[in-house]
Nucleic acid binder design. Structure first.
Lengths: 205, 205
DNA sequence: GGACACATGTAAACAGTTACATGATTCG
DNA sequence: CGAATCATGTAACTGTTTACATGTGTCC
């Protein structure tokens, strides 16, 4: 439901063609609200019909330059202030984490450390972006910086978490090894009943 | 594409009906991979056709208990280890942040502080979950805890960021007020050029 | 004139949401 | 027997992705 508002938001800054918007989506919004070319062109048509944007000028090669209307600006304001954000959504990295029990602890650790590296790389990219972007004095740059800072902090937290998690798997591994040793010790004293042949239990605890 | 793997992952733990799976989705996976009832039933049909799950038992009221097959387990393993997670996706809260320039600084601050509160509430809920959940010694609980910790750390970072961001808007507001004052002063006494009045500079470090 | 960037669109497939529809069993 | 819970499914709609299709200026 928010591709609409992403387009309105970009047009609120300055008029643009579908082609221009695509570049903006790919550069500034790629990490926040990715969109494809067909989506953008379709959305512009819908927004024009709804009266939230209008074709302000025609250029060469059939270029249509869109501008936000007063209705569009009102809708954007309403969305910003009155509509509750939906909070985090699907997260397939975390979904994997949930199911790491079905692979070996070593594989799980490899996965987690790999995730740590990915987060570190993301962070490095954002830092690079921070250095190279020209931060003029526009309002947009104040909030662009703030959004960037979000990414920096989140990727840092993500990296720390993944390294911590890999350590945690280590501890669980050690705990399990300890249990196994204890059980083998009990087996050594042969007076007990109903042994489990090889420590691999089919069910339960 | 990962609803499939969410279902496989849950069935890898233990066989379940569509109805059972819905409960699991609503309880354990709601923050990670939400799914609706019609999605789950549809997915089970597809997975059965693909041979990744099978109907292991029929119960009363037309209950079909599904179990993961060897092919399903292999697919789940492959996804866990070989397929790169897609990294963060659409984030409508952050999208709003990008466009906060079109509302007043005061409204922007209100929004950011509201976000901080939401993050704090989320964190409190997760802490409650951590205390009330029964953490048995199953593999799943090791990774369930790790996933929960992710949520705790992320919501903490999010809250800190939002409070920092609100402060940042304050500074920008002050900077702007400073500029305005300087400009008015220049208009009053036209002979001097470009002083830095109060330590608030528009650019650089 | 050929390559490249500019520029717009459509169609098919897949993923996800909301609403509706229906029936069986259990428990008080 | 009536309500709650168990249990499965379908239909219509919205959003997203991928692939295709086409044409126009500009620069070397």
């Amino acid at each position: 439901m928010s591709l609409k508002h992403a387009v309105l938001g970009l047009l609120a800054e300055s008029p643009a063609s579908g082609y221009d918007l695509m570049k903006l989506f790919n550069v500034s919004l790629s990490n926040v609200w990715p969109a494809t070319q067909s989506q953008v062109y379709g959305e512009l048509t819908k927004l024009t019909t709804a009266g939230l944007v209008e074709v302000a000028a025609h250029g060469p090669r059939g270029r249509k330059e869109y501008a936000i209307t007063d209705d569009g600006l009102a809708e954007l304001r309403r969305w910003l202030i009155e509509v509750e954000p939906t909070g985090q959504q699907r997260h397939d990295g975390l979904l994997r984490t949930f199911f790491l029990g079905i692979v070996t602890p070593l594989e799980a650790q490899t996965y987690l450390l790999h995730q740590a590296d990915r987060a570190a790389r993301t962070r490095a990219e954002l830092e690079h972006l921070e250095e190279t972007a020209q931060w003029d004095e526009e309002m947009i740059s104040v909030y662009g910086r703030i959004a960037l800072e979000y990414g920096l902090r989140m990727s840092a937290t993500q990296e720390e978490w993944a390294r911590w998690a890999a350590e945690e798997v280590n501890s669980a591994k050690a705990r399990k090894a300890g249990e196994l040793a204890r059980r083998q010790h009990e087996e050594a004293g042969p007076q007990e009943e109903s042994r489990q042949p090889d420590g691999a239990r089919p069910e339960g605890d």
